[in-house]
Design a binder for these strands. Structure first.
Length: 206
DNA sequence: CATTTGATGTTCT
DNA sequence: GAACATCAAATGC
């Protein structure tokens, strides 16, 4: 068993295939994102920051208006797979595809609190000690976990990337809601409070 | 400290 | 050719 804890904790496909992406984004807080890449040990951390995106009524979404492109094709699939894309020519950003097929919605994972495989994560990021810079921010997080576009479209029940529920759910009162980062181009939709963080966590991006 | 800039490569117009 | 769901290093106080 290569999982960081117990495969009984694996998030089921039914979690991803629900119709409310902002609910899923909030419920992903406190879950554990895990990877096992190549011959490296398992690396994982607790999700502390997410953002929701939807094709319907959200100009910030890559699939806004149900516009199909080569890049966003994974978002049109059934929920429960990875949508990874290159941002600013440098960074791979990792999203969880949600909802049913043909209804493109996704949750961008923006920060984790590192928990397992610390040595491997420090090596990947060329860091000496664990700080919020290690995995706080969507580009840092993928580098820390070894996620690249090679994992585009990969199932989140695969043995490379998966998400576990360790039983803690974050209460609504403990979630901060704010506008999403870097989406001014979306006009009015940039004001939607679809960025979610765990209140008081030192691990969220700055 | 805060703010600016340079890096980098797809995608879409 | 412009824009881009970013980051680290350099510069300005």
């Amino acid at each position: 068993m290569s999982a960081c804890t117990d495969s009984n904790n694996l998030l089921p496909l039914s979690f991803y295939r629900r119709q409310d992406v902002t609910l899923i984004a909030r419920e992903l807080l406190g879950k554990h994102l895990c990877t096992q890449i190549g011959r490296d040990s398992v690396t994982s951390g607790k999700i502390v920051e997410t953002e929701a995106y939807a094709a319907r009524g959200d100009k910030a979404c890559h699939a806004s208006g149900y516009n199909r492109t080569e890049r966003n094709r994974a978002m049109f699939e059934e929920g429960g797979i990875a949508y990874v894309y290159l941002c600013y020519g440098i960074h791979n950003l990792f999203n969880v595809v949600t909802n049913v097929g043909g209804e493109p919605e996704a949750v961008l994972i923006r920060a984790i609190e590192p928990t397992h495989g610390i040595d491997t994560m420090l090596r990947r990021r060329n860091q000496e000690e664990v700080t919020p810079k290690l995995a706080g921010g969507p580009g840092r997080l993928t580098e820390t976990l070894g996620i690249t576009r090679d994992h585009y479209g990969l199932s989140l029940q695969s043995d490379k990337i998966w998400i576990e529920d360790h039983g803690s759910s974050i209460k609504s009162v403990d979630i901060n809601k704010s506008p999403r980062i870097g989406v001014q181009y979306a006009g009015e939709d940039s004001k939607k409070p679809w960025r979610y963080t765990i209140k008081g966590s030192q691990w969220v991006s700055k």
